[in-house]
Structures are given as structure tokens and as C-alpha cells.
Design a protein around this nucleic acid. Structure first.
Lengths: 199, 199
DNA sequence: GGATAATGATACTAGATCGTGTCATTCTGT
DNA sequence: ACAGAATGACACGATCTAGTATCATTATCC
């Protein structure tokens, strides 16, 4: 157990190899946490260093400058949110009567989560400064889900838009709490009926 | 013709009354321009002062500190984007066969404009720091349009969501250009047919 | 005409931030 | 055991920024 785990001051000097392997992960963990909460401009490297229990020079040697830290944090968030859609492929292979329903509910819950909404908001906010992140986010997020839906319905893009809907816009604006599972299911049912997709 | 109009240095000393009336407008014009392009954190008061051809002290006496300038700029943008929806009321009073179609096209074009998308993006980006702006934006923007649609269709919220759709999400991410009128009309037709709202 | 108010130009304070430098300390490789 | 690599603690320089102060200048009020 490293001393970092119990919050004490990290010991000086060259780290052991096992510590080195955790180092970058710990830095990005802290970066994700801070960027989600305060945005790119609201996080200083000094604060990130303190939060990750590391010095700025270590951040530079493990990740790079602030823009590279942000890029790496967003990439990690993309991978963190995306796995929730992987069962999609299995669902497609065994399309039961409620496969669409199950996928839709999982999609709604996942994309309304604090992490997914925070990522979405962050990428929108910094789209000017980091256009590549916006491109990657849309491909790995919305487009990925739309492609998954395209095997199940004739109007995947419209279905995806409606599954997020105004509740998701309000989430982006910080006006709502994430929906409960019951609320997500009710929303999905309403959308599927509206599009005549109920079985 | 004031000297400000031709870009020269503004004369010193107390301004005439007519100059005073324009002063706040000029400051907010510059603020809107800069905030839309660079976001809240990307605009310094020095730059705003230069752009508005005014000194920082004048900004403070006419509008207030940076947060108040931002609030005033967003309020002005809200009023700037919203008037496009006012003909709604007249349309409602004389619901011809294509009243819905005309309103929908105007809504799509307006809300996909650079100004409207920039405002939307800015409010999302600063929702944490300025939650009241997010509330006001949603009421004056999306909710306003949804209310207008509620007199014409049984599913106004879903129709509104679809009228923006994925193209609007991509606009927020800076991935697309604003749609042409022909593209907007085609999109509206597709959405109205999908929802069985075509006359 | 004289007092007062408001402004531009300029400088300044105080603080934050990015990125780098120094030095003692600790681990790795040989 | 010993040289070199990597780190924490600390400091530093350069830059930027918000907000305020000073002083000459110009308009308004009486």
C-alpha cells in the first residue's frame, strides 16, 4: 500500500516501478475529476498537482502540458462512458422482442449520467480550442449509438435525438437531475410509441 | 458623427448626452462580439475596453464588473435571438394549412444561426458559474418555442427536439455549418412526415 | 464664467498561472 | 557499492488579469 492511498505526503525520490505504472493513471484520475467539475480554464496545474499528490514537473514528464492533460482526460472519459454501449452488439445478434427497449433504456441512463453530461458539456465548451476533441467525441458518442440503433429501427438518428430530448438539453444546462430508471423507462416508452416502434 | 464611428481615438473628457446614450450599447455590442467568439474566460476587460473604444473605468461605471458585463451581454443576446419567434402569435391566430410548416422552418433557421448557437454554447459552458443565465435561456429559448408549438401540435416538446436534432448537436460542437434554407425546409418536411403532422 | 461631473490615458497593485530551475532524496541498473 | 535517473519541495521569472488611482481634458449645470 503506497502512502498516496492514505493521503499522507508522498515520499521523495525516484519511485519504484509499480508506483510508476500507477502514476499516470492517478494524474488522469485527478484531471478528469477536476476538469469535469471546473472546466478547462477553471483548473490550474498547481491545483491538479496537489490533487494528484504529484508535482508539476511530474505532470509534465508523464503527460505533458495543460492541453495534453486535457486531451488525455477527455480521451479517458470517452472510453469510460462508451463501454456502456458495448453490449449493443450482443443485443443485435439476438434481437428479442424487447432488445430495442433494453438498449434504449441503457442508452438514456448512460448518456444522462453526470459523467456523460459533464463530458458533453466540456467538449461543447472547448470545441473552439480543441476541435479534434469535438470530432472524436461525436464519433465515439452519438454517432456510435446511432450506428447501433440503425440495425434495429429505420430512423436511428431521429430515435437517438428523441431518446435524449429536452431532458438532456436541460441536463447540459444544469437544470435537472439525472433521471431515475423508472423515469428513463417511461421516457423510452413514450418515444417508442410516438415513433410507432412499440412491438 | 462621433469620432468613434471612424475608428479614431475617442476624444477625452465628459461626453455629450447623446454620446452617453450610445455608450452602454457600444460596450455591450463589443462584449457580445467578443464573448461569442472567445467565451467568458477568453475575454479580458482590457481587450473589451480596446474593442469598445472605452477605458475600463467607463465599463465599470456603465455596466459593472466582468460578471455583470457577461450577464448583460447574454440578456442582450436572448433578446436578439428571440424576436424571430414573435410572429408566432400572429401565425397562431390565423392557422392556415402551412402555418406549422412556416413556423418550423423559421425556428430551424433561427436556432441554427451562428448567434443562436453561440449563445447556446456559451450558456452551457458557463452554466456552473451562472446558473441563472441557464434558467433564463431555457425559458426564453426552447421553452418559449415549445409553448408556441403547443397550440399547433399534440407533441410540441418532441417536435422541437426533432427540429433541432443531431444537426444542432453538431453545430454546438462546431462540426457543421448553418443549414441553408433549402436544407432547413427539407429537414422540416422529414420531421413532420415522421410525426404524421403533414397536412 | 466657474464649479462639478465624467472621461481618456496611463500607471499601478495584487494575485493567479504556466512553465522551468535547483537541490536534496530515493530508487534502478550494473 | 556506486553512478545515474526520477522525484518532491521550493522557488523563480514571465505573463496575464481584475480592479483602482491619478491627472489632464471636456461637457454640463448654475
Amino acid at each position: 500500500m503506497t502512502r498516496a492511498a492514505d493521503g499522507g505526503p508522498r515520499k521523495r525520490g525516484r519511485p519504484t516501478e509499480s508506483e510508476r505504472e500507477q502514476r499516470r493513471e492517478e494524474i488522469l484520475d485527478a484531471a478528469v475529476r477536476l476538469f469535469l467539475q471546473h472546466g478547462y480554464g477553471g483548473v490550474s496545474l498547481d491545483r491538479l498537482a496537489t490533487e494528484a499528490k504529484v508535482t508539476k514537473r511530474t505532470i509534465y514528464s508523464y503527460v505533458g502540458d495543460k492541453t495534453e492533460v486535457f486531451t488525455a482526460a477527455v480521451a479517458r472519459l470517452n472510453r469510460e462512458v462508451l463501454p456502456e454501449a458495448e453490449p449493443v452488439d450482443r443485443q443485435v445478434r439476438t434481437p428479442g422482442a424487447n432488445a430495442l427497449d433494453a438498449l434504449a433504456v441503457r442508452l438514456v441512463i448512460t448518456l444522462h449520467s453526470d459523467v456523460a453530461v459533464g463530458l458533453h458539456r466540456m467538449v461543447i465548451a472547448e470545441a473552439h480550442q480543441f476541435p479534434d476533441l469535438a470530432t472524436g467525441f461525436y464519433a465515439a458518442g452519438p454517432q456510435h449509438y446511432i450506428d447501433a440503433l440503425s440495425d434495429l429501427v429505420p430512423c436511428p438518428e431521429e430515435l437517438f435525438t428523441l431518446l435524449l430530448g429536452e431532458p438532456h438539453r436541460r441536463r447540459l444546462l444544469g437544470l435537472d437531475a439525472p433521471p431515475s430508471r423508472a423515469q428513463a423507462e417511461a421516457h423510452v416508452n413514450g418515444v417508442l410509441e410516438l415513433l410507432d416502434l412499440s412491438r
